[in-house]
Simulated assay, not measured.
Amino acid sequence: MFNETIQNNTLSKVIKEKWTVKETKAKANQVQIPLSIAKFDLTECNTCPHNSVRQSGLFDNGDVDAKCSNNTCFKAKNKAYMEVQLSEAQERFGTVLLLTETNKADRKTVSATVVGETQYNESCEACTDRVAIMDDSITGSAWSYRRKSVH
């Protein structure tokens, strides 16, 4: 279920533009976020009226993939979860860069495959410029920490 303002604005468009049920559902699906990509605990989402599973009987088409229609709430929960993950990663790795805030061109992956097992284990692992990169995007994995040397 979308908030009242969105529902009212959508209703006006449905009437004015003569959307079919299929078109209306397709447009709703475009703005909903699949709960399957959530990194945070979904316990609250199971009873939330913005969870599409609670509305699945409306269209009677068997679509039971849970989606969130409250993007603001979803993003806030995701952000709070990632802040905890970032804090834990900083304790574990020291310097942590967020993937969404770094430029790919500035990152150089250093691994045992790239520089050789001995070099990596003896030099890179002890390098003071080594950082972890955490994938903090909505679709990324919360545990995508990658230790890298930045040179």
Rank of each mutant, 00 (worst) to 15 (best):
37 I>T: 07
113 T>L: 08
64 V>D: 14
151 H>T: 09
78 N>G: 04
72 T>I: 14
126 A>H: 12
32 Q>P: 00
108 K>G: 00
60 D>V: 04
85 Q>E: 13
70 N>S: 07
3 N>A: 10
146 R>Y: 07
29 N>T: 01
63 D>S: 06
102 T>K: 10
130 R>H: 06
41 D>S: 11
76 A>V: 03
119 Q>N: 14
107 R>C: 05
84 V>Y: 05
104 K>A: 09
126 A>Y: 08
7 Q>L: 14
89 A>M: 04
29 N>Y: 12
68 C>T: 06
88 E>A: 11
78 N>C: 03
95 T>A: 10
108 K>Y: 01
151 H>A: 14
141 S>V: 12
52 S>I: 02
15 I>F: 11
135 D>N: 15
16 K>I: 02
65 D>E: 15
31 V>L: 13
25 K>F: 00
83 E>T: 08
103 N>F: 02
108 K>V: 13
131 V>I: 15
141 S>H: 12
143 W>L: 09
98 L>T: 02
114 V>F: 05
32 Q>S: 12
90 Q>C: 08
9 N>W: 08
72 T>D: 14
90 Q>H: 03
105 A>S: 14
130 R>Y: 03
75 K>E: 10
60 D>W: 01
98 L>K: 13
51 N>W: 03
14 V>Y: 03
16 K>V: 04
123 S>P: 00
118 T>M: 09
107 R>Q: 11
45 C>V: 07
121 N>E: 14
62 G>A: 06
11 L>R: 11
98 L>Q: 11
121 N>S: 12
33 I>Q: 01
138 I>A: 06
83 E>Y: 00
13 K>N: 06
145 Y>W: 02
93 F>W: 10
121 N>W: 09
82 M>C: 03
140 G>I: 09
76 A>H: 00
120 Y>D: 05
144 S>N: 12
143 W>T: 08
27 K>F: 14
12 S>D: 15
94 G>D: 03
87 S>A: 13
41 D>K: 07
24 T>A: 14
40 F>K: 05
11 L>A: 12
120 Y>H: 09
20 T>N: 03
109 T>R: 07
116 G>L: 06
77 K>M: 12
12 S>I: 14
11 L>N: 13
2 F>V: 04
146 R>P: 00
68 C>W: 10
79 K>A: 12
68 C>R: 05
103 N>K: 15
132 A>Y: 05
142 A>S: 14
53 V>R: 12
126 A>R: 13
76 A>K: 11
40 F>L: 06
35 L>P: 08
127 C>G: 06
116 G>A: 05
147 R>N: 09
107 R>A: 04
22 K>E: 15
122 E>K: 13
52 S>W: 09
111 S>M: 03
64 V>H: 04
135 D>C: 07
24 T>M: 12
19 W>Y: 10
7 Q>P: 00
28 A>C: 05
46 N>E: 15
